[in-house]
Design a binder for these strands. Structure first.
Length: 763
RNA sequence: GGGCGGUUAGCUCAGUUGGUCAGAGCGUCUGGUUUACACCCAGAAGGUCGCAGGUUCGAGCCCUGCACUGCCCA
């Protein structure tokens, strides 16, 4: 910290000066612009008449939102082109309530249409007035002390709090007939971020970092280096939109006030000499003034802004200012994860100071460090902020804080974690949703129950003398080509979903990763695979033991891999179950102490497209039959025969009859060569299916459904035909789009024909 | 005042470079005590993607304007 301060001072980038700063009267310290929260507030605009000296009965009327500061007025300013006030330019006014006379000056900054067009100038208590004062060489009269009470400059008002003073000033003006109109006025006031006290702009002597200035030796400014780091892509901010926010802020950066009048913090390494009045800035505590040798030196009482030392973290963490091996090895780091509210406060300062102090440190191989290697980190991921259900920022004063402990106790840590991950889509904040959390608690429960089912079967298998080899676990499962369809399918699925999860994580799309896993675990693994695998887990004497063992192995392998896939999202549950897998299935300890230490499943797309395709058809058939049964009123429990007309060879419905029977509650599958008459039919481009059911069906409802269906199909066809009939489309659209549309058109034509026929048969 | 977002099913939200993308969960409705799970299963209904123009063969997605809304900075 000292090294940084002294070096910047030597480079001419740290200076001390009297400026208007944001002053918190309660904390009694200066605070930076970033620590001030601006709020709109209904206030008043008072008009005050300042008598013109030497012109009895004439006044210049000013408008102000802060009458008490008039005691520190040193001028009244008007716009140079404002005709109303031309005659007063250069004249003096008598400042009411005091015995001072102040000039009328012209300054471009004054807005003629605001208030009366004449403004009081109080350089010690307003940043704009300070600038005007500097331009016109006016003095600055501070009228308040560090607690925002009126000081000795104010005579009769001395000792009054600023608001009490305001009241008295107004009363006195009123009594003297100098108070004009009072209007309602919305103005913006600054409050201290920490204690919410209204900030007082106050003239005081502070330390600043000149962020936009070239250093003494020449070269780019700190802010410029920090801008380039992002603009030139050495630092990539995700979501990208924050790059713009960052650059916009950097482009409008003022000097950074780094001194604080607090009693804790790093003290400023500057000693003031009582003898000669000069300053000694030193790395080591000096015993004498470097200018005159006097021993009467006192260290500056101020301490540094906490973000100054925090901003140095990227280099100090690796031993800077010493040059250590850690620095060579780890700087620049890869990724910083943080919330956007910290982007300016900390991230920007780390970039500025990191780039600055690393730039003259050679690379490990001795070569010169280039810009890309000066940055403290290569990537910044800005995560979402959690807000309350009404999207309000949580705050203690508003009382809308959601207590994470309470939520975690209620829904479980894993459910809360999964909820946040699933809602963390980049660039938007998270409105905390209890309903979503409830859903993911159910998900955790679902996984737990799936595990119970699996372990139960492992027990049964063991009783039947079937054991799963421990060596089979811990990797991506592999299945034989002649394995049952559901085994081939779930393994292909696991692979493609794992690949998708990895891709999503690589791009910080956590919600996508979470949703993919959710869908895989619940939708694919539980709803389809587990239901089908029940058929294979037959531990009776007459079963094919090799087949049962293979099924059980795939089941365990898939579950184990799925747990690893899920573990970053639900660490506690998966840890527990993963250990249980090894203990229950293999009666042994897992290969590592924690699931977190295992290899994350990578997966691959298209490992078994044939299984994917065949299983999709099977699902389509089962779903169609289920819907059909419901439509024609087959009781839930009743199993019925179905009849299928398949248009494709590969519909291996025959070999998968068991699956269809179990999942669609079917007794018998008949096949036919052609469309038959009768009711209770459904068509898809791949097959027609009929549920054979004796009871009369609701023909009018069925007709209505078919009519609706037909209308939809015709709409689809019309749109496809329109596009395909457009030469421009055929000429310009890519081939796969045109092909896809052609297939859609053909399929739709076929369906329309079938639907029409079905309608005819209903009569 | 300057900047950055958002507006998609009743609710909470996805929808990466314009085409096979209109989706999920919750809620609603219907039916189910199938030996893992009713914190469950099956099925269904529900949206002219804020409004108005424009670019394009093609727009939830790109451009312009407007309305409402949130945030950041001054």
């Amino acid at each position: 910290m000292r090294e940084a301060f002294v070096r910047l001072y030597e480079e001419g980038l740290i200076y001390r000066g009297a400026y208007i700063v944001n002053w918190c009267p309660r904390c009694q310290t200066a605070i930076s612009d970033l620590e001030v929260a601006h709020e709109e507030q209904q206030g008043k605009l008072w008009e005050i008449r300042y008598p013109v000296v030497g012109a009895a009965g004439e006044f210049v009327t000013v408008a102000t939102t802060r009458p008490e500061t008039m005691l520190g007025d040193v001028a009244v300013a008007v716009h140079p082109l404002d005709e109303r006030y031309q005659k007063y330019l250069g004249k003096k006014l008598r400042l009411p309530l005091t015995d001072r006379e102040i000039p009328v000056i012209a300054d471009e900054w004054v807005k003629s249409d605001f208030g009366t067009g004449a403004v009081k100038v109080t350089p010690a208590h307003d940043p704009n007035d300070f600038e005007i004062g500097k331009r016109h060489g006016l003095p600055a009269i501070n009228v308040m002390d560090e607690t925002a009470h009126m000081n000795d400059e104010t005579g009769a008002y001395a000792g009054l709090d600023r608001y009490a003073a305001r009241k008295k000033v107004l009363e006195d003006l009123e009594a003297q007939g100098l108070l004009g109109a009072v209007r309602e006025h919305v103005n913006t006031i600054g409050k201290c971020d920490r204690c919410k006290t209204v900030v007082e702009p106050r003239l005081s002597t502070q330390w600043f970092v000149a962020v936009n200035k070239e250093p003494n030796g020449g070269g780019a400014s700190m802010a410029e280096l920090a801008r380039r780091a992002v603009r030139e892509g050495h630092i990539r901010i995700t979501p990208e939109q924050y790059s713009k926010v960052y650059l916009n802020w950097m482009d409008n950066l003022y000097d950074w006030c780094i001194s604080r009048q607090l009693w804790w913090g790093h003290r400023i390494p500057v000693w003031h000499c009582a003898a000669c009045g000069m300053m000694t800035v030193a790395r080591q505590d000096p015993t004498a003034c470097t200018h005159c040798g006097s021993a009467e030196i006192v260290q500056d009482p101020d301490v540094l802004d906490t973000w100054f030392s925090s901003g140095l973290l990227p280099v100090t963490v690796f031993g800077w200012p010493r040059h250590e091996r850690d620095f060579d090895v780890f700087y620049p780091t890869q990724l910083l994860v943080t919330g956007f509210d910290i982007l300016f406060l900390w991230v920007s300062r780390m970039i500025m100071l990191g780039c600055w102090f690393s730039r003259d440190i050679p690379m490990a191989d001795g070569s010169k460090r280039e810009a890309k290697d000066t940055v403290p980190f290569h990537k910044v991921y800005i995560h979402a902020l959690v807000r309350d259900a009404e999207r309000q920022k949580m705050s203690k004063t508003k009382g809308n804080v959601i207590d994470p402990i309470h939520i975690v106790e209620h829904y479980g840590t894993d459910a809360v974690r999964f909820t946040l991950a699933s809602m963390a889509s980049p660039g938007t904040d998270i409105a905390f949703s209890e309903a979503r959390t409830e859903g993911y608690r159910a998900f955790a429960n679902k996984i737990w129950n799936a595990a119970r089912f699996i372990f139960m079967n492992v027990e049964k298998a063991r009783e039947a003398g079937i054991e799963v080899d421990r060596a089979a676990l811990g990797a991506m499962p592999a299945v034989a080509d002649n394995a049952p369809i559901e085994a081939r399918w779930i393994v292909a699925r696991l692979n493609s979903e794992a690949a998708e999860v990895n891709a999503a994580l690589g791009e910080y799309r956590f919600h996508e990763a979470a949703n993919t896993i959710y869908q895989f675990f619940w939708g694919d693994f539980c709803d389809w695979y587990l239901e089908i695998v029940k058929l294979r887990l037959d531990f009776s004497e007459e079963s094919d033991r090799a087949a049962v063992k293979a099924a059980l192995t795939t089941l365990l392998q898939t579950f184990e891999a799925a747990l690893r896939l899920l573990s970053p999202f639900m660490p506690f549950l998966t840890e527990e179950l993963w250990h249980a897998v090894y203990r229950m299935a293999c009666e042994s300890e897992p290969p590592t102490k924690s699931i977190a230490l295992t290899r994350y499943p990578q997966g691959a797309a298209h490992t078994d497209d044939a299984a994917d395709r065949d299983f999709a058809l099977l699902q389509e058939l089962i779903v169609t039959v289920r819907a059909l049964r419901k439509d024609i009123g087959v009781e839930e429990k009743l199993a019925v025969p179905i009849r299928i007309w398949a248009t494709q060879e590969r519909l291996s419905f025959g070999t998968n009859a068991e699956i269809i029977q179990r999942l669609a509650r079917v007794t018998e599958i008949r096949t036919a060569e052609a469309l038959s008459e009768g009711t209770g039919m459904r068509s898809t481009p791949n097959f027609d299916v009929q549920v054979i059911y004796e009871k009369t069906i609701d023909t009018s409802a069925e007709r209505e459904r078919l009519a609706k269906e037909l209308a939809k199909q015709q709409k689809t066809l019309a749109s496809a035909e329109k596009q395909l009939g457009n030469p421009a489309f055929l000429a310009k659209a890519p081939a796969h789009i045109v092909e896809g549309l052609r297939k859609q058109e053909a399929d739709t034509r076929l369906l329309i024909e079938k639907t029409r026929k079905a309608l005819e048969e209903l009569g």
